[in-house]
């Protein structure tokens, strides 16, 4: 009894910390309402700068980092087979992934190694949108899935650039999870 009295609060605290650690790294702002045509072609569009106006120009992500981010998004979409094809800068694509960077901190591997405790962490918050392109002049582009995604690298053994790869993974994972759910619902609807 004494053992549980002593250890139960510790387990409770650990459970809260684990739960907060396992929490989703994103907030979905537009949920996918209908399944996507899995044979369609998708492309990666622009990732624009929506950092605060007074953000230090020298501390913004570089064009190379944004290119790498787009490559990660392309690779993840291909890997998870969300679309029939994912092309780079494809003007005829039916779907386009666009985004913006809202918060960015490059961080320092040296500081992470020397000090730690979250100091020197690299972090990014991005808004990512999956847009269904208009098929004709009478239609408008439609945001069908969107969310704000956040990632942090606080481990000195990892490169700060991993944040973009992780955000890309989170985005595609969240999209695939939703698609699976919708496809399952559709399949069960047809059966009944």
């Amino acid at each position: 009894m004494n053992f549980w009295k002593r250890t139960l609060p510790l387990f409770a605290v650990m459970a809260i910390l684990i739960a907060s650690g396992c929490a989703k790294n994103y907030r979905i702002t537009q949920e996918l309402e209908a399944p996507i045509d899995r044979t369609a072609i998708a492309t990666i569009g622009e990732i624009v700068d929506l950092l605060p106006d007074d953000f230090d120009e020298g501390k913004k992500p570089t064009a190379e980092q944004i290119d790498a981010f787009k490559s990660h998004l392309t690779a993840q979409l291909r890997d998870k087979e969300i679309f029939g094809a994912v092309a780079y800068d494809e003007p005829d694509a039916e779907y386009v992934v666009e985004g913006s960077v809202l918060e960015f901190k490059k961080g320092s591997g040296l500081v992470r190694a020397l000090i730690g405790f979250g100091i020197g962490s690299a972090k990014v918050t991005t808004e990512l949108k999956l847009i269904k392109k208009a098929k004709g002049p009478e239609e408008q582009d439609e945001v069908i899935f969107a969310g704000n995604f956040k990632q942090t690298v606080s481990d000195w053994t990892e490169s700060g650039d991993k944040i973009f790869e992780r955000v890309a993974k989170d985005f595609v994972k969240a999209l695939k999870k939703r698609m699976k759910k919708l496809e399952k619902e559709m399949a069960s609807g047809k059966e009944s």
């Binding site: 929506l50 120009e57 913004k60 064009a63 944004i66």
Partner: peptide
């Protein structure tokens, strides 16, 4: 202008060795 898909803000990230970026860094 950002919310309007037709006049969306353009990408304007600077390269690692861009002179403007180097000036700030």
């Amino acid at each position: 202008s950002q919310s309007d898909m037709t006049v969306q803000k353009k990408e304007d990230w600077l390269g690692e060795t861009d002179p403007i970026r180097e000036k700030y860094n």
